[in-house]
Every structure is written in structure tokens, then in C-alpha cells.
């Protein structure tokens, strides 16, 4: 069962100290709040994209859904932010020699082989998006932006993210 530990050790650590990277994310939050009047968040961008796609196929229906009445599915700050983060990670990994095209994560491949990752990840994505919308945010919106504002809802949600994750992973590795 502890085979995964060796694999994780071999695959190695972060390029920078996680304390430094984390602290700078905290500083970044100062700027998003002050200059853009926005908390850092990620999950709502996926809901926006889902709504944009929904508009292509069933415009009336999509725009009449309560969530999309409250959060119109169009290009917004959150969407540009998340899209740009893909670029930021590309710059970081490319210049740091860590860019590598992969279709299956190494840890999964070493333990489970090449099968089934896609279906697990797809189902995981469904649950993650639904859970985030129900809880009101994800590991960014609740886990960083909400917690640093000392929001009770965010600390409870963050705790539950990890409880759900730690229990579930026992069945995977």
C-alpha cells in the first residue's frame, strides 16, 4: 500500500519553496482585492464556460436558469483570470524545464497502469464542479480568498474539501 510513497518521493518536489510561492499568492490577493475588487477564484470560470456552450445549443433555456440569471455566462474577470493562469503556468514550466506533454499522470500510470484515468477524472470533474457551486466556491475562492477574509463559510468548506478528499483517496491508492 505504501508503494505510492516511493513514487511520490521519486517524482520530486516544487521548483520554489512552497512557503515563498504561497506567500506571493497571498500578496497577489492583496492586489486582486485592491485593484480589481475581486477575490481570487477558479471554479466559476468553468460554470461560465459551460453557460457559453449552453447558449450555443439552447440559448433561451440556458439564460432562464437561475444560476445563469444571477451569473450571466459571458466573458468576465474570473474567466480571463483562469484562462491566463494556464499561460502563467506554461511560462513557469517552460522556462523552468518542467514542461511535459502527458495524457496520464505519472503516479496514476505507475500504480494503476494506463487504464481508467479518463473516466475517474471525468466523474471527479462533475462532482467537483457541482460541489463547488453548492458550497459556494472551490479551493481558491473558499480555500484562499474566503479563508484569508476569515469567513466562517470558507473555513468550514475548506475543511470539508479535505475530509472528502482524504477519505476518497484511500480507495484509490
Amino acid at each position: 500500500m505504501s508503494e505510492y510513497k516511493e513514487v511520490i518521493n521519486v517524482l520530486g518536489q516544487s521548483a520554489w519553496s512552497p512557503y515563498l510561492a504561497g506567500s506571493l499568492i497571498g500578496v497577489l490577493a492583496w492586489f486582486t482585492f485592491t485593484l480589481s475588487d475581486k477575490p481570487i477564484g477558479a471554479s466559476s470560470a468553468y460554470a461560465t464556460l459551460a453557460g457559453m456552450i449552453g447558449k450555443l445549443f439552447a440559448k433561451e433555456h440556458t439564460l432562464n436558469l437561475k444560476y445563469y440569471q444571477d451569473n450571466p455566462p459571458r466573458l468576465n474577470w474570473e474567466f480571463v483570470f483562469v484562462l491566463s493562469s494556464i499561460g502563467g503556468a506554461f511560462i513557469s514550466s517552460y522556462t523552468g524545464g518542467e514542461f511535459e506533454v502527458r495524457w496520464i499522470p505519472k503516479l496514476w500510470e505507475k500504480i494503476h497502469g494506463t487504464d481508467n484515468y479518463a473516466i475517474y477524472a471525468f466523474i471527479g470533474g462533475i462532482l467537483m464542479a457541482f460541489g463547488a457551486r453548492l458550497a459556494g466556491g472551490c479551493t481558491s475562492g473558499h480555500g484562499i480568498s474566503g479563508t484569508l477574509q476569515l469567513s466562517v463559510a470558507s473555513w468550514i468548506s475548506l475543511l470539508c474539501f479535505f475530509v472528502g478528499g482524504v477519505i476518497t483517496i484511500q480507495f484509490l491508492y
Binding site: 506554461f90 460541489g131 458550497a135 481558491s140 478528499g165
Partner: peptide, 27 residues
């Protein structure tokens, strides 16, 4: 409930919404 469901999905996918977007950028 939302938090727990999110956690299950997080474990299955191996990424959360923000870190996963960034992971796409690293290939």
C-alpha cells in the same frame, strides 16, 4: 455537503479547478 462532494471529486481528478488549469499550462 458541497464541500464533501467537492473533496470526492478532487481526489478522483487529482486536481482542483485552479491548480488543474495551471497543470494544463505545464503540459
Amino acid at each position: 455537503i458541497g464541500g464533501l462532494i467537492f473533496g470526492v471529486g478532487f481526489a478522483l481528478a487529482g486536481y482542483c479547478p485552479g491548480t488543474g488549469a495551471a497543470a494544463l499550462g505545464q503540459g
